[in-house]
Design a binder for these strands. Structure first.
Length: 437
DNA sequence: AAACCGGGGGA
DNA sequence: TCCCCAGGTTT
């Protein structure tokens, strides 16, 4: 029979470590930063901050947090807001499912707990978007309950102080460190102590060049005493992101849509869920060849594929004008290599959702049928697409994708991921200088 | 357990 | 450039 090894072997798991806990807590209380979410212990304010701080640095979060709290000051305000407004406030922060889950959690608090975040670990853990770290953070910081809150900082600090050599990429290691972190919490000081661990990791015990000389617990740090602080924590490396080649169309409208751009909304699940984007295609792997040659920037293949896609999706016939720019975007697990083709519309194709250009005025039979189908779909899905019938009639809905003509003001209202925001923003700059189509 | 989910800043 | 970040959810 195999013997099950405990993950983290250390006496501190049983006995705690008075030196470490006392010194660290004192340091934090003397040195802690003044941060917007440290004004008070309002559980909602703590909750929002902890979600924003997932995978995101303090300095990045602060302006978003201030805007968010001003716009959604209470659980109720957040629960009742249109999702698009919430996503807009999150624009540029990334990991947009955090925003969607946070609002879903707010709705749960309204329905299940009468709008009051309960002082109950199981209840908080059950909220959408709240995992082990966040529940521990909320319980300890908002309610001062002795729960561990183990994030990357805490794993680094404890790995170094106790010279732990387990791979912190493994869930079992995290579980062990959680036990250790729980045993270290000083009586009645859970909130401050957990924040102290993270503050030390953020300010002193940093990944690359830890400031051991100014560390409040350097005297008994086993990692430093062994001269191994730079080796710890041990973490297996992630796989490199896969490459995806994509072709995007930047399409100028005409007639009533002159000066506007055609964009569409991504579906509600998966990558960049619910965000808006330029219409684009995933290309086959051999597209790498097309991207390799500078000379091929006419790109007849891409132009043709984009034309077919937009025609199928919206019934509109676009006229590709030529290469605009290439743009790379790195996600944690995918590398997008995107080639943007600038297009306009043929004279005969003037906005399918425009009532003045109804089906009868269109010579092409296919386009006519597409127009009818689109209008019908727009009516059916009016509630989902937009907030008013008028807006819905302007949306083009083919295979579930919502297309829309936007001007600059629309761009201020709709949530875009940074990569598209950049491209569209630059384009309008150029147009302002008279360089665009 | 591994994959999926963004974007930015530090070194 | 590379690395990592105040992680959670889905498969």
């Amino acid at each position: 029979m195999a013997i099950k090894q405990p993950t983290i072997q250390h006496t501190a798991v049983q006995n705690g470590h008075p030196y470490f806990s006392t010194e660290l807590l004192a340091w934090y209380r003397a040195q802690k930063r003044t941060l917007p979410w440290r004004k008070n212990h309002d559980p909602y304010r703590i909750w929002v901050s902890e979600i924003m701080l997932q995978q995101t640095r303090v300095d990045t979060v602060i302006p978003y947090y201030l805007t968010f709290m001003e716009k959604f000051p209470t659980v109720q305000a957040l629960a009742e807001a249109p999702e698009e407004e919430v996503l807009k406030c999150w624009e540029g922060l990334g990991y947009y499912s955090r925003a969607r889950n946070l609002q879903a959690g707010a709705k749960m608090v309204m329905e299940l707990y009468d709008g009051i975040i309960p002082n109950d670990k199981e209840a908080v853990s059950g909220l959408k978007g709240v995992g082990p770290y966040t529940s521990g953070a909320i319980m300890s910081i908002a309610f001062n309950r002795p729960e561990p809150a183990v994030d990357g900082n805490v794993m680094r600090v404890l790995s170094r102080f106790f010279c732990l050599e387990e791979d912190i990429a493994k869930p079992a290691t995290r579980a062990g460190i959680e036990k250790l972190a729980a045993a270290l919490i000083p009586e009645g000081a859970a909130g401050d102590f957990n924040q102290a661990l993270m503050e030390l990791g953020a300010l002193i015990c940093t990944p690359k060049s830890p400031g051991c000389l100014t560390c409040p617990v350097m005297e008994e740090c086993e990692g430093r005493l062994a001269g191994r602080e730079l080796e710890l924590p041990i973490k297996t490396k992630a796989k490199p992101p896969r490459q995806e080649y994509r072709a995007a169309a930047l399409i100028w409208g005409n007639g009533e849509n002159a000066g506007k751009l055609l964009v569409r909304q991504r579906e509600g699940k998966g990558l960049l869920a619910g965000m808006w984007e330029l219409p684009h295609l995933l290309l086959p792997p051999h597209a790498a060849d097309w991207f390799a040659e500078e000379a091929s920037k006419e790109q007849p293949e891409l132009a043709e594929m984009l034309t077919v896609m937009v025609e199928q999706d919206t019934g509109q016939l676009i006229r590709p004008k030529g290469w605009l720019k290439d743009a790379d975007h790195i996600f944690s697990h995918i590398l997008w290599k995107m080639r943007v083709i600038e297009c306009d519309l043929g004279e005969e194709s003037t906005g399918i959702a425009d009532e003045k250009n109804g089906a009868e005025s269109k010579p092409e039979e296919a386009a006519s049928k597409a127009a009818e189908a689109l209008m019908a779909a727009a009516e059916e899905r009016e509630d989902y697409v937009n907030h008013s019938a008028e807006e819905a009639s302007k949306s083009l809905i083919p295979g579930g994708m919502v297309y829309r003509w936007i001007d600059r003001e629309d761009m201020e209202l709709l949530p875009f991921p940074n990569l598209f925001l950049r491209i569209i923003g630059e384009t309008w700059e150029r147009r302002g200088r008279g360089e665009a189509l």
